[in-house]
Amino acid sequence: MSDITYGRVATFNTHPDASIPKESPLSVAYNTGSVPAATSDSRVLFKEQAFLGHLILRGGAIVLDEAVRKVLGISLPGQPLGLALDETGERSVQWLSPDEWLVIVPGGEELDVEQRLRDALGDAHYAIVDVSGGQTLVSLEGEKARELLMKSTSYDVHPSNFPVGKAVSVVFGKSSLILRRPSEERYELVLRRSFADYLYRWILDAGAEYGIGVQR
């Protein structure tokens, strides 16, 4: 049985044996679209970090903060649009709305993290939902990454408005995604699976001017 009932909520281990093939939301794009190689002239680099664990946390900040610190070693971002990472940079918690956070952890950790959070949270009112199959993380780097974003979103991505440690849900082309700034030199994009192909096409088109390269 894959479900483990936690009190009155069912958790679910989605993963089969590692031998079972899996496809990221960008597989159609990779298989059927253009995949320009990165060169020394590429002024934007596109790299997917596929198959990570994505969890949506719902609940009040006060309720969640202690458990998140205990399980992930990260404090909940204190400000709206905040993004907090652990020391390795592999685990992060991001503010999505006043009672909603996105947790991203290395792939396969998500069920363990969920269960440890549930253990820590006890009877509190909260929700944890695994959405790992529904989205994927992409990083954009390079001197023209910001200009590519300016072509794509009406959100102000100037460093004065979008510093390291900020994350925001934005309109992107005619779709939407989550835009994050984990470090000076890198932007992260969280794409929804069903929109991933459109967004990939959009990003490649916008990046053509800068010789965008896709690292696989």
Binding site: E23, P25, S27, V28, N31, T32, G133, K151, G173, K174, S175, R193, S194, F195, A196, D197, Y198, L199, R201, W202, D205, A206
Partner: peptide
């Protein structure tokens, strides 16, 4: 702008899209 041809409107694909094609 770029909102034309294959970028005119988002196309949402399911995980099985390629098989269908």
């Amino acid at each position: 702008g770029r909102h034309c041809r294959e970028l005119f409107d988002p196309e949402r694909y399911t995980a099985l899209h390629q098989w269908h094609v």
